[in-house]
Design a protein around this nucleic acid. Structure first.
Lengths: 111, 111
DNA sequence: ACGAGTTACTATGTCTGTCAAGGTATATAG
DNA sequence: CTATATACCTTGACAGACATAGTAACTCGT
């Protein structure tokens, strides 16, 4: 059972930021992490992921640098910026608010 | 404090279906209801609302008829179909699942 | 009686995030 | 030497939400 893109839409950035709070990381690793963590229920498509990176970097929420791999494919590492942390916190707060709001709007409660 | 479109995206249909579970209704009323219920935090734009109606009707989830108003502007009423109820239930289930998943993906829990 | 505001619906075009599809390149296992 | 895994990137298309604008009938205050 996988969830639709529309339900996830808007969370991609936050998911990435959250992952970068732990440590600097790169695209492939983040994608792997997500699909493992959700048992394959949610998989970011590569195009989505890399376009998110571009957007986040343009907005100053992450910065990037090439790793110095001596073996294997090169990796572009990303790290979260101070501003990225601020936005992350805000996104979490927005999400909590939205969650409540949506629940109120889609549940059958009153008549 | 209002929430962004992206967080709401994909819920518009469910919100409308939910409202129609109570009773047949029309665009303006649904919009009013939503903005009141959320204290103005969330307001469906008209274009969004009416395009959702079109989409829902095309998919057979709602049906419509002109009201017989003897006064005031004419109203197009919508009612939820049997199939609409099924989809509503599914959307709710999907939402519950997505909510859990998103929470897991955006919260700082493990390292 | 008239103008402003409210109710109510519709049409057209734009923006943005996601995705499908395809490509490049290196390393390892069989 | 071919398949698979790792790793990144680009292009174009799509769908939902939105901005903007228009139509039309009623209501209320002055």
């Amino acid at each position: 059972m996988s969830i639709t893109s529309d339900l996830l839409r808007g969370h991609t950035d936050t998911i990435i930021l959250r992952h970068l709070l732990n440590r600097d990381s790169y695209g492939y690793e983040i994608n792997k992490y997500i699909s493992e963590k959700t048992d394959g229920a949610y998989e970011l498509k590569e195009a989505t992921l890399y376009s998110a990176f571009r957007r986040l970097e343009e907005n100053g929420l992450i910065s990037s640098y090439w790793g110095d791999e001596t073996t294997g494919a090169r990796r572009r590492y990303y790290s979260i910026t101070r501003q990225g942390r601020v936005v992350y916190e805000k996104n979490i707060a927005d999400w909590d608010e939205a969650k409540t709001l949506i629940d109120e709007l889609i549940r059958e409660v009153d008549v």
